[in-house]
Simulated scan of single mutants.
Amino acid sequence: MALLFIAKDPNTNGTQCPTAWVDDEAKEIVIQGWKAGEALLERCRETGSIPETEAVLRLPIRMVDALREACDVADRLGVR
């Protein structure tokens, strides 16, 4: 199956907005979100470094249902 679309941010026009998918082959939840600004990155770095291969993304709290659904889909597919 590979990449399964879950949802886009419900409060946007449907393009260029936060999105959630489940990749059952890679066993990952895939998220498109807004890039974190430098102030947020600095606060995140207080917990530890952020490797070049990783990113900090921001999602509106209204995406919680989409993230829960992605987790539920991953569970149903046995993606663990």
Rank of each mutant, 00 (worst) to 15 (best):
P18N: 06
V56G: 01
A7K: 08
E38F: 07
L41S: 02
D65W: 06
A2L: 13
E25Y: 07
L57Q: 11
R43A: 01
T53V: 00
V30D: 14
P51C: 00
T12R: 15
R76T: 04
T12Y: 11
D24Y: 11
E42A: 11
K27Y: 09
D65P: 04
G48V: 13
R62S: 11
K35E: 15
R80P: 01
E46L: 13
S49R: 01
E54K: 15
V56F: 07
P10A: 05
L4R: 03
L4Y: 08
E54S: 15
E38Q: 13
A26S: 12
E52F: 05
D65H: 03
P51G: 03
G48L: 13
G48H: 09
P10I: 03
N11T: 02
D23P: 08
V64M: 09
E28P: 00
G33W: 10
A20M: 10
P18M: 07
G78E: 05
L57P: 06
I29F: 09
T53K: 08
I29G: 07
E25A: 04
E42I: 04
A36W: 09
P10T: 09
V73S: 00
R80T: 01
V64H: 07
L67Q: 12
P18W: 03
V22W: 00
A74F: 06
A7G: 11
V73G: 00
K27L: 10
L77K: 14
E28D: 06
G48C: 12
A20D: 04
A55W: 12
I50M: 05
G48S: 02
G14Y: 08
E52K: 00
A26E: 12
M63N: 14
W34S: 04
